[in-house]
């Protein structure tokens, strides 16, 4: 694949990933140590548990210019805090469906269960998510345009 530096910098999405410390963050580390690459525009924020992620954070990410937000947690039943991810699943199911109802493309929001042993899966999920968001294009619907133009 030819990497043309000169042509207009085509759209690369800005992805914020919330990863739970016990499973998906460890999965990301494993993906790193196994050198399984995924695009650089995915940036990871560590939270104690997926249930720590407040819808405010997701909306804040979109406001600040993120084009896609993905939340990773332990597989239901494996949560280090026993029931954390069950609540996350309900909260995000409702939030994502609601955002879709508001006209925000559903594919911009995503939740994946990644265990500490699934480095392969973590990298595959991130590659797939970046591809999906790139196809969707820049997030123009749920963002603060002034932040974008660096006002």
């Amino acid at each position: 694949m030819q990497d043309v530096k000169t042509e207009k910098k085509e759209f690369t999405p800005n992805i914020v990933a919330f990863c739970c410390n016990w499973c998906s963050y460890a999965g990301a580390d494993l993906a790193g140590s196994s050198r399984l690459s995924y695009p650089a525009n995915v940036k990871i924020i560590r939270v104690p548990c997926s249930c720590r992620v407040n819808p405010m954070f997701v909306l804040k990410a979109f406001q600040q210019g993120a084009d896609g937000v993905i939340l990773c947690g332990c597989h239901p039943g494996d949560c280090h805090y026993v029931t954390g991810n069950y609540y996350t699943r309900r909260r995000m199911a409702l939030l994502y469906s609601f955002l879709n109802y508001m006209g925000i493309e559903k594919a911009r929001t995503r939740l994946e269960w990644v265990s500490a042993a699934e480095g392969q899966r973590f990298s595959a999920v991130m590659n797939d998510f970046v591809k999906t968001v790139t196809e969707l294009g820049e997030n123009k619907r749920l963002t603060d345009l002034r932040v974008k133009e660096g006002e």
């Binding site: 939270v47 104690p48 548990c49 407040n54 954390g84 609540y87």
Partner: peptide, 9 residues
């Protein structure tokens, strides 16, 4: 244990 479930509720 600091999981944070309560902070979002």
């Amino acid at each position: 244990q600091g999981c944070g479930a309560c902070t979002v509720t």
